[in-house]
């Protein structure tokens, strides 16, 4: 049960980090995050599953493909929208539109079927009474490495500092001579690449289909609502809470009470702390 919680939490953290990064930089809730996750899975399916490309090289391709998609979305859609529109809900509606666009394009290009790839590693470890498949362990380790790498990048590199500055105050960042449009596009590309990487990793364990995006988007929203929208440590905390809530709920509670309780708990929690665990009341 606890092992399941750890595995789920790490996987979810990778998904939540991408969406929180985009939200913090651009104040856009990326409704297409789950769809970007799905495209990452399909890139791995075609490269690793069908064309026999090395799995890790396929993950690099995922970063490139989703990075370009994210960059294009920001450059051609959201940047233009920010300059033209004054109301915030415009960008939200645009985000919903991009999610529908990606899902329907995926359905047309990739078909309706569930897809899977051969396992990268095989075997099952038995730890006490618990079972841990090697594939899940690999995904967990890779996800942990990526999370640590991202945190170090955001914390210690010049680009990372620019991203954080943009998240804190767009105008001041502009006044400091930072090319705000370029950094925003980079942030969106990075967020999209993270979603794609999560899809590319989890593809080896769960497979993928064109309609899976919405479920992951909803889970990502739950995590950032728990942790606090736009806060990187909050996203990780939200992933831990959701991962363990799912694992413990499914192990101990009958039927579908798990998600019922998660949603009821979330509503009650938001009534008392709408800014999430690590968010500030003033935003």
């Amino acid at each position: 049960m606890l092992l399941n919680g750890v595995v789920l939490a790490v996987n979810y953290a990778l998904i939540a980090l991408g969406i929180t990064l985009i939200f913090s930089i651009m104040n856009i809730l990326n409704f297409a995050h789950g769809q970007m996750f799905m495209i990452g899975g399909f890139v791995v399916y075609y490269l690793y599953g069908l064309f026999g490309v090395n799995y890790f090289a396929s993950l690099v391709a995922v970063v490139a493909v989703l990075g370009v998609i994210g960059w294009c979305f920001e450059k051609f859609f959201f940047q233009r929208m920010r300059k033209m529109a004054t109301r915030e809900e415009n960008s939200m509606l645009l985000a919903v539109g991009t999610a529908l666009l990606l899902e329907n394009l995926a359905l047309s290009f990739f078909g309706e079927k569930q897809r899977g790839v051969p396992p990268v590693v095989s075997g099952v470890f038995k730890i006490g009474d618990a079972f841990l498949p090697a594939g899940r362990l690999l995904v967990m380790v890779l996800a942990l490495v990526l999370i640590v790498g991202l945190l170090l990048f955001v914390q210690y590199t010049k680009l990372g500092r620019a991203l954080r500055a943009l998240a804190q105050d767009r105008e001041v960042t502009y006044l400091m001579g930072v090319n705000v449009d370029r950094i925003a596009a980079l942030g969106f590309a990075l967020g999209a690449a993270l979603a794609g990487l999560a899809g590319g990793l989890l593809m080896t364990v769960f497979g993928i289909n064109s309609g899976v995006g919405t479920v992951y988007s909803i889970k990502a929203f739950i995590m950032i609502m728990i942790g606090g929208a736009g806060i990187v440590p909050g996203a990780i905390l939200g992933a831990v809470v959701l991962g363990f809530a799912e694992a413990i709920g499914y192990a101990l509670l009958p039927g579908s009470i798990t998600y019922l309780l998660i949603f009821v708990g979330l509503i009650v929690f938001l009534l008392f702390r709408p800014q999430g665990l690590m968010g500030k009341p003033w935003g």
Binding site: N4, V7, R136, V215, Y250, S256
Partner: peptide, 18 residues
């Protein structure tokens, strides 16, 4: 006969454990 999973679930490990 009481075990169920939500539509859209991809990780069946926890529920199948039961």
């Amino acid at each position: 006969s009481n075990d169920t999973y939500e539509p859209g679930t991809t990780d069946f490990f926890p529920v199948m454990s039961r």
